[in-house]
Amino acid sequence: MSTATIQDSSRARRSRGGSAPRPPVGAAPLERSRRRMFWAFTAPAVLVYFVLFLVPVGYAAWTSLYKWDGIGPKKWKGLKNYQTLWQDPTFRHSLTNTLKILVVGGVLTFAFAFALMLILREMNRKLFARSVLFFPCLVNAMVFGIAAGILFSPTGPVDKILEALGWSHPPQWLATQHLSTMILGTLIWTATGYYSAILMAAVDQIPEYLYEAAELDGANAFQRFRHVTLPMCWDVISVCAVLWTVSSVKIFELILMYGGSSGSQPPAGSWNTAMYVYTEAFPTASTPQLGLATAAALVSLFMVIIFTVVLRRLLRRDPIEY
């Protein structure tokens, strides 16, 4: 990131130089047309982004201060909605689940992804293996949620295999108290392939001569990993960490459909904040609580912001040029 900023400022100086009295020959007409076209080129995207993205976010923040069913008049609540959320055990549980997915899921996914990346690099036919392990992240998570309903049912394939291996009383995988753990496991399985592919792409760009130099200096495999691989892909690791934060907070369809045979709503024990927002805003039986729902959504946004800022601080390193 920091390297990009340095390049930016040098380019910015060059473009500002374009408006100076004596522009460099050849660059002047280009500069002039660019300045004129900059706004024409960016306007459509900026407009779309403003109307369909930024305004909704602002509107959500505003709605979160009211009590509103979506039809009648809005009633001012101020920050009381957030207080109500904090006192609601269902929301606290959803928040805990979200944090569990974010932190526990994140640590495990990264540990697995790193290990997988290191193993894949030494493997024959690694591209094939990488493709297969990558694929699950392209599939709607509902697919795996529904498949799990049969796979882990008491008469399903998993229990049959375990029985054949001598484990006659496997746990009730799909019981309500195990649901959030199962969801976490499924999530880690789908994400590991993706993140290890990102790490692999980063590691592939490390020049071979660094490893050769390290080997000549007598570094063993672990030291080569610690002093070459890790520092060289640090930037990508920090991007991945931020990416994981956002994508783990917005998981929805996996929880909605897990097991495939739950009631009209999944049991509250497995909810995360996204699920909580959905059930509060679009309930099947009761009146919608749009103020409360948007407040819950804003809490998840604050969570992403806090985690992103902290992670970027923690993971900041001096950029390495090569």
Binding site: Y49, L52, F53, L54, V55, P56, V57, Y59, A60, T63, G70, V242, T245, V246, V249, K250, F252, T273, A274, V277, Y278, A281, L290, A293, T294, A296, A297, L298, S300, L301, V304, I305, T308
Partner: peptide
């Protein structure tokens, strides 16, 4: 634009539904 990458979808779902 990059900041938009950090906004989870559930934040916009109610406003976009209303809008």
């Amino acid at each position: 634009f990059a900041m938009g990458l950090g906004v989870p979808g559930q934040v916009m779902v109610v406003p976009l539904f209303i809008g």
